[in-house]
Amino acid sequence: MVKNHSAIPSKDGVLVLRPTKGWANLNLRDLWQYRELIYFLTWRDIVVRYKQTILGAAWAIINPVVNMIVLEVVFGRLANMGSEGLPGPIFRYAAVMPWGLFSKALATSGRSMLSNRSMITKVYFPRLIIPIASVLGGVVDFLISFLVLLGMMFYWHVAPTVNLLALPLIIVLALTTALGVGLWLSALNVLYRDIGYILPVLTQLLLFVSPVGYSTSTVGGKWQILYSLNPMVGVIEGFRWAVLGITPGTVIPLWNLLAISVGVSLVILISGLFFFRRMERTFADMV
């Protein structure tokens, strides 16, 4: 039994502050009471992002389009990798979108505890709000980049299917995965600034072991299980399935890929939540 119920208000509002030991309670009720702050922080991240830029929110379109072109040239033209019977650009763009959401969320949440240091040392609020808001902040960019996808679908006559209804679930999966990894990285970054240097390398590595430039069916049959332990595999193939209506020609059915992704992503998220709460008590003293 862990004697660690400090800082959780009792019913009459009395709060006891004492040293913490062992694993912390997640205290999600506290998080709920501060939900307005989640909203404000997300809003701040979005509003501030394109301040004093000439192109403003157009960057939310330019970035994924440029990424798509690079991937199309390298994987489609130079490496001659297939695109499941669809035009290469739309096939790759449909992966660049969830990938962009994930990689941006990783970058911002990984640094988030440091960039919000002045608040962490000066005012109390559930620290979990910081990585949560930095992950949510990417959703608007993601939605804007959707416009290009719609244009491409129109141009190449790719009609949406009923699969589109599952899109919100896929987006939630992408955000869950990003938050899980972000929680680990942001908490570790408080102690070890090495994370700041590992992060870009890690993101780049993940890009190549995720089916962004190619299809999961390119990966050899016996490797597909191992490959799909990367939760972004399920997210990206799921996204393509939802918007373009295509299923990768993999040995393992798409549903199994998705199930593995959901499982792995939940493990990362839940362990990340507990790890973050465990480290949280040292944040104000260490950051």
Binding site: L15, L17, R18, P19, S118, I120, K122, Y124, R281
Partner: peptide, 25 residues
């Protein structure tokens, strides 16, 4: 509630607002 005591305890019977610095955030 920004940092925890290493020993002992503090009981707060009311809601605390603190201004350790103005213009936080």
């Amino acid at each position: 509630r920004i940092t925890r005591p290493s020993k002992g305890k503090i009981t707060l019977y009311q809601r605390v607002n603190s201004l350790l610095e103005i213009g936080t955030g």
